[in-house]
Amino acid sequence: MNLKKLIQRLRHVSQAFFFIFFVFVVVGTVCSFIIGGFEIIEPLGALQILIANGVPQTSLIIFITATAAFITLTVILGRAWCAWACPIGTLTEFTEYLIIKRGFKPMVERGSKTLAAVSKDRVWNKEVKYLTLGAVVLSSALTRTPSWCSFCPIGTICRGSVAGTLVAGAEMAVVGAVLAANVYEKRFFCKYICPVAGLLTLISRVNLFIKPKVKREECRSCRACAVICPEGLMVCEEKTFAECTKCFVCYSKCPYNVISISLIGRKISYSPHHNRRKTFQTSCKRH
């Protein structure tokens, strides 16, 4: 098994492990849990508490360190949480797998569109998740309740085990809707709506490590990466990779094998367009 398959296998094993860990094993949910004596609080929950109630009425040191732990992980690993651990991400990818296995294609990718057209035809804007984040913050301030927490599909999945079954209450409708949205576009919820992803993206703007690197001279600008990438990033033209979930799918599936992973990635310089076209033409002539 080569490294490209191995890394995806590893990711799926990690996803399965964390799914079982969060849904069945751990005391608490993703929002707040203890792992090896370390308290961890998910930053969106902490932010909502701060907005809704001001100062939490518990030992502040634990609250701050627990939130800082998650934020530090995000600064170091970027949005790796979304692709390697998030239970909803795991379920989303599983439904995606089922959809493709049954011979369906996500609605955006249907028809005789070319790959470049798919990435251009996207109606939804990825900035929408900042709007969701804003709406959550605003309604938290208005109602003085962590208002997203009641709806959060991630929390719902984790809480489900407490209620005895995975199907508990009306909140499961939200999870159903999230999974059903995959029929329209893969990872629709994570890409466009999830406020947790929005917050993590804001934090991971300062992330420096583990980024996809494109070999400029070999890239043929086929733009398949925009469809391959679960987050819809055009890897060959992306500069900051704040939205990158470190899933390495681009590395595994690039048709020309030009994407590698750089561990300490400075901001990748974007080569001017005509340069690339020239190399493309020369490579065409050679063949």
């Binding site: 751990v26 005391v27 608490g28 949910t29 993703v30 929002c31 707040s32 849990f33 609080i41 929950g45 902490a46 909502q48 508490i49 809704a52 109630n53 939490p56 009425q57 003085r144 309740t145 962590p146 927490c149 009641s150 959060c152 929390g155 984790c158 809480r159 407490v162």
Partner: peptide
């Protein structure tokens, strides 16, 4: 009830433990 709802992040650690 009021301050409870504004502080609870629905993590259900109490329920698990």
């Amino acid at each position: 009830e009021e301050s409870f709802l504004s502080l609870c992040i629905r993590c259900n650690r109490c329920a698990d433990i």
